[in-house]
Amino acid sequence: MNQQATTIQAQASAETGIWAFILADMCIFALYFFIFAWDKSVHPEQFAQGQATLNITFGGANTIILLISSCFMAKAVQAARLSDVARYTHYIRLTILCGCLFLVIKAVEYSDKLAEGYHVASNEFYRDYFAFTGLHMLHVIIGLLVLGYALQFRKDKQAFSTHTLFIENTGLYWHMVDLLWVVLFTFIYLVP
């Protein structure tokens, strides 16, 4: 009976509410993409100059870090479904580590730009750059806080399976953070 219950839990999807939350957030970010594309078409030289000042290596590294963190998160969720607390803990820690690395690189990038004299109101390019990547960074920070909370479930070995839904929801959120950065990176750093 318990095994059946576990199997059902293992196959259960995250709840509809979190999907709705994620979709709503993705719609807001879609607005960011559109605004960026619009501003880019209105100020092409300014955006080309601005893009040239960005460090593609930092941006690319952040993309790779977040993609890897998504893989770790997926593995953490898989482990949680099987109530494998040790594996779950291992992968959640790795996900958090990746998130922290992302923040460190972002901090270095921002401080470089600020040192060069660019800030959120310098021109339309830097307004979009700082605001959109900054709001994304806020999502990463929120994600890390939630992951930190989820890490505590490792102490609750007896009732670990009761936390599976929360972990699934957290996984979805983290993947959203990753996919939004994929588009932001492409638009802001790469697209000529």
Binding site: T16, A20, F21, L138, H139, I142
Partner: peptide, 27 residues
């Protein structure tokens, strides 16, 4: 529950307002 998630989404959606004092032109 979906209203709780929506509440959290609206809360995040108010994170832009500290940017207001930076802009003396429309945007």
């Amino acid at each position: 529950r979906w209203m709780s998630y929506l509440a959290l989404w609206v809360a995040i959606g108010m994170a832009y307002t500290p940017l207001v004092p930076f802009y003396t032109v429309s945007g």
